[in-house]
Design a protein around this nucleic acid. Structure first.
Length: 538
RNA sequence: GUCCCCGUCGUCUAGCCCGGCCUAGGACACCGCCCUUUCACGGCGAUAACACGGGUUCAAAUCCCGUCGGGGACGCCA
C-alpha cells in the first residue's frame, strides 16, 4: 500500500445533545487530522431509527462549529472533496451499500442466517448468567444444513444475519494502549443485520455498518471512546471477512464524574450546548477538553489555542487511564480566556445573560443593530406610518458604556457569564429586611457606632440634591469619620451593608457612579438616596 | 459471573516504552502571606502522590509476576 494521508472520522449518533466526552473525541480526531495533514470526516450514525432525530444532528453540527472544529466531509462540511467516492455521510442513506455487502458475506459463507428468536436468546443469556457466566452466543444456527435453512425460509421464518467469528485470536493495535488480543471463544458471532420485524427491521447493526463505512471511507485511524474496545474484535473479524486492511485504533478513556462514575447529568452540565448557554467560552472548553487525557511534552504548558495545539498533539501522548471532569479547572481556564477575550465580544455575551435573567434592564434592542436610520425613516414614511420606539445611538452607546463599567467590577468575580447577573444583583436593588436579618450583618449593625454612622450618612443623603458622585460620597465618609470617630471596618461595613446588602464588594468609588448613572439613564435601579432612606427606615 | 481496559499529589498530568540526572516536575483546588476599608483580581509561598506484595538488578515510579481497587463490555443500542 502506498503512503496515503491519514483519514479519521467522528461518528456520533444523533440521539441526544453532544456530550463532553464525545466532544473530546471529536476534538482529538480534528487535532490528529490537522497534525498530520489528514482528512477529518463527520458521519452520522443514524441506524437506530427510533431514537435518531434531525434536530440533534443540527444541534450537533452547531456545537462542533462553536468549539472551533470543521470537517472535510459530511453534513455541515465546509467543502467535500470526495463526496462522490465516500459519501453519503448519513448511514440511513447508505443502506443499499450494506445490503450488497451482506449478500457477499452470505454467498461466501462468512456470515449465516440465524433463526433464533429474541425470546430464545434471552433465555439462553439468562441461563448462561446463572451457570457459567460467559454470555457468548451458543452458535446454534452456525452450521444449519442447507435443507433446514431452506425449510425455515419457506416457512417464512424471520432471520438475522450473523458473522462467523474465525477460530483464531482477534488482535488489533491500539495507539493508546498497545496491542490488544481477544481469544475467539470469548467473542460472540455478532448480528450484522436485524431480522425483518420491528421498526428497525432489516436494518444493519452499528458494529457492522461502522466497519463497512470506515473501510469504504478509507479511514486509517479510528479514534473513539474506550467503551468500544470490546466491540473491536468483532469489527476486526468483519475487516478480515471482507479482506480489508485493519486500521489503527486509538481508544480514549472514559470521562468520569467526581464520584468516579461515568460523567452524567447528575454531576452537572455535560452537554456542550449547556456549557455554551452558561457562558463558557469555546476556547476554554476546547482547551480544557484537550487537557483531559493529554498533556504537552514539556509537562508545563496548559493554555493553548486550537492552532497552538495542532503541532503539539499526538495520540501517543494520550493517557489511557480514565479522567475525572474537574469543573474547577474548567472554570479557571474560562476565567483566563474571559480576561484575554475582546471586551466587545464579552459584552455581547454578558448582555445576553442580563436579557435572559433580568428582562427590562437591557432591552433587546441594545444587543442588536438591526435598525438602521434608513429602516426607521422608511417605516415612518409608510401609510399608515410605523413608529419604532428605538433609543438613539447616544442612548445605546451610553448603556454600552454603563455595561462596560459594570463588567469591569464583576467579571473578575465570575467563573462563567451566567453568574454575572447574580453577582451584580445588588446593583439592581436590595431587600433591606433581608440585609438586616443576615446574622453577620446584624452583628455589625447592632453597635452604637454603626447606628451613629448610618444616621450621619442618612442626614447627608437627605440634605443632598441631584446625583451623588463618588467624590460626594468620599467627602461624606470623611466627615462621618470625624463626626463619629468610627474608622476602618466600623466605618465602612455599615455603609456598605446599607448600600449593597453585604459588608463586602467592589469599591464605593466604582459602585456609586454605576448606581447613579444607571438610574439616571432610565435603568430600574434604586438611587443612593432611595437605598439609604429605605435601609434606615426599616 | 466471563472478557477487556486502567491504577503517580484531592483533581488533571510530566516522568514509564529506552531503569540511575526523581530527595518525583507543572497546573487546578485547598491553606498561608502580601496588596487592599471589605470581597474579587493580582503577586508570593506552603502542604500534598509513585495502590499493595513479591521478584529481576549495584540501582525500579520506570522491567516481570501476583493481589487489591476502579471502570467498561457481554443487545436484533449506538
Amino acid at each position: 500500500m502506498t503512503n496515503t494521508i491519514p483519514r479519521v472520522r467522528f461518528a456520533p449518533s444523533p440521539t441526544g445533545l453532544l456530550h463532553v466526552g464525545n466532544a473530546r473525541t471529536a476534538l482529538y480526531n480534528w487535532l490528529f487530522a490537522h497534525r498530520h495533514g489528514g482528512l477529518f470526516l463527520l458521519r452520522i450514525e443514524d441506524t437506530d431509527l427510533e431514537r435518531s432525530e434531525v434536530r440533534y444532528e443540527t444541534q450537533l453540527i452547531e456545537d462542533l462549529h462553536w468549539l472551533g472544529l470543521n470537517w472535510d466531509g459530511g453534513p455541515g462540511a465546509e467543502y467535500e472533496p470526495d463526496t462522490g467516492d465516500h459519501g453519503p455521510y448519513r448511514q440511513s442513506e447508505r443502506l443499499h451499500i450494506y445490503a450488497e455487502h451482506t449478500e457477499r458475506l452470505l454467498a461466501e459463507g462468512k456470515a449465516y442466517r440465524c433463526f433464533c428468536t429474541p425470546e430464545e436468546l434471552e433465555a439462553e443469556r439468562k441461563h448462561a448468567a446463572a451457570t457459567h457466566g460467559s454470555q457468548v452466543y451458543s452458535g446454534r444456527c452456525r452450521n444449519l444444513a442447507q435443507e433446514e435453512i431452506d425449510l425455515n425460509l419457506a416457512a417464512g421464518k424471520q432471520f438475522a444475519v450473523r458473522l462467523r467469528i474465525p477460530d483464531h485470536p482477534l488482535r488489533f493495535n491500539d495507539i493508546v494502549r498497545g496491542p490488544v488480543e481477544f481469544a475467539a471463544e470469548t467473542v460472540s458471532d455478532p448480528v450484522l443485520v436485524r431480522s425483518a420485524s420491528g421498526a428497525s427491521g432489516g436494518v444493519p447493526v452499528y458494529n457492522y455498518v461502522v466497519t463497512i463505512d470506515d473501510a469504504l471511507m478509507g479511514i486509517t485511524h479510528v479514534i473513539r471512546g474506550d467503551d468500544h474496545i470490546s466491540n473491536t474484535p468483532k469489527q476486526v473479524a468483519i475487516y478480515e471477512a471482507f479482506g480489508w486492511p485493519v486500521p489503527q485504533f486509538a481508544h480514549l478513556s472514559t470521562i468520569l464524574g467526581p464520584d468516579r462514575e461515568r460523567l452524567s447529568k447528575r454531576h452537572g452540565a455535560t452537554s456542550i450546548s449547556v456549557f455554551r448557554q452558561m457562558g463558557y467560552l469555546p476556547e476554554a472548553m476546547a482547551n480544557y477538553l484537550a487537557l483531559l487525557g493529554w498533556g504537552a511534552e514539556d509537562g508545563k504548558t496548559e493554555t493553548f489555542t486550537l492552532e497552538e495545539l495542532v503541532p503539539l498533539f499526538s495520540l501517543e501522548r494520550v493517557t489511557a487511564s480514565p479522567a475525572i471532569f474537574d469543573f474547577d479547572k474548567l472554570n479557571w481556564l474560562n476565567r483566563h480566556y474571559i480576561k484575554l477575550a475582546d471586551p466587545d465580544r464579552i459584552a455581547k455575551l454578558a448582555e445576553r445573560q442580563f436579557i435572559l435573567q433580568k428582562p427590562g434592564i437591557f432591552p433587546l434592542w441594545s444587543s442588536n443593530e438591526l435598525y438602521t436610520a434608513e429602516t426607521i425613516a422608511l417605516l415612518a414614511s409608510l401609510d399608515p406610518p410605523i413608529h419604532l420606539d428605538i433609543p438613539s445611538q447616544e442612548e445605546i452607546a451610553q448603556r454600552k458604556a454603563w455595561l462596560a463599567q459594570l463588567l469591569a467590577l464583576f467579571l473578575p468575580k465570575v467563573d462563567y457569564l451566567a453568574q454575572l447577573p447574580v453577582k451584580a444583583a445588588f446593583i439592581f436593588g436590595i431587600d433591606p429586611d433581608a440585609a438586616h436579618a443576615d446574622p453577620e450583618n446584624s452583628a455589625i449593625l447592632s453597635t452604637d457606632s454603626a447606628r451613629a454612622v448610618l444616621s450621619e450618612l442618612a442626614g447627608r443623603v437627605r440634605a443632598h440634591t441631584g446625583k451623588v458622585t463618588a467624590d460626594d460620597f468620599k467627602t461624606w465618609i470623611n466627615e462621618i469619620k470625624s463626626a463619629t470617630g468610627a474608622n476602618g471596618k466600623d466605618l465602612y461595613h455599615p455603609i456598605r451593608i446599607a448600600l449593597t446588602g453585604s459588608h463586602s464588594g467592589p469599591e464605593f468609588d466604582k459602585i456609586i457612579p454605576l448606581i447613579e448613572e444607571g438610574a439616571a439613564m432610565g435603568i430600574a435601579i434604586p438611587t443612593v438616596h432611595d437605598r439609604i432612606e429605605q435601609f434606615v427606615g426599616v
